[in-house]
């Protein structure tokens, strides 16, 4: 695995850190993500495992982590990019890895990150959602629950005859 990482460093000129559990991580600029993934796909990273977005609200950034897997060399590579939280736009990779389309749809819905060039950014899981994207740190689900789901409960009054009659 270490040999492969040094070889990869030489070929692509990327700064890859080895980590435990067959993993390595790599940080690139937002603009270079398409080029990096194209290079890595040529090197044999054929499986797009997942795409994660992390909301670092204190630093006002979203971190996108692209997880790639090399089957022969057994290397799990995490490609990380930072994007601005106020203007979250990044170029799509859904034409490089087809399945990335679904993951980008999910990140768009849950974090509001826009993927330029993705043809299918229609709502994925939520329906008629009007609030801020729910997975953002500033969305408070407990307050939302209090507002939406707590109403005057009249069920006892409605079902009263039943209890009186049979109990």
């Amino acid at each position: 695995m270490s040999d492969f990482i040094t070889r990869l460093k030489n070929i692509t000129g990327l700064n890859i850190h080895k980590e435990k559990l067959y993993q390595a991580s790599l940080k690139v600029d937002k603009e270079k993500i398409r080029k990096t993934l194209l290079d890595l796909k040529k090197e044999g990273f054929l499986q797009f495992t997942t795409l994660t977005c992390i909301d670092w609200i204190e630093e006002k950034t979203f971190q996108l982590v692209y997880h790639l897997w090399h089957r022969e060399e057994k290397l799990h590579l995490k490609v990380k990019i930072d994007i601005d939280r106020d203007a979250p736009i990044v170029e799509t990779v859904s034409d490089i890895y087809i399945v990335a389309q679904t993951y980008e749809r999910e990140v768009k819905e849950m974090f509001g990150v826009d993927f330029k060039g993705n043809k299918r950014l229609i709502p994925f899981i939520l329906e008629d959602w009007n609030e801020i994207p729910p997975m953002r740190r500033d969305f408070n689900t407990r307050e939302y629950v209090k507002d939406m789901y707590e109403t005057e409960d009249r069920t006892e009054e409605i079902f009263k005859p039943r209890w009186k009659k049979y109990d």
């Binding site: 729910p134 969305f139 689900t141 939302y144 629950v145 789901y149 707590e150 409960d153 409605i158």
Partner: peptide, 20 residues
């Protein structure tokens, strides 16, 4: 009453509010 998902934004809590 919501059970495990008492603070989840996506699920309803009391079914009897919406259906008998």
């Amino acid at each position: 009453n919501g059970g495990m998902y008492w603070d989840s934004y996506a699920t309803i809590k009391k079914l009897e509010l919406y259906l008998p």
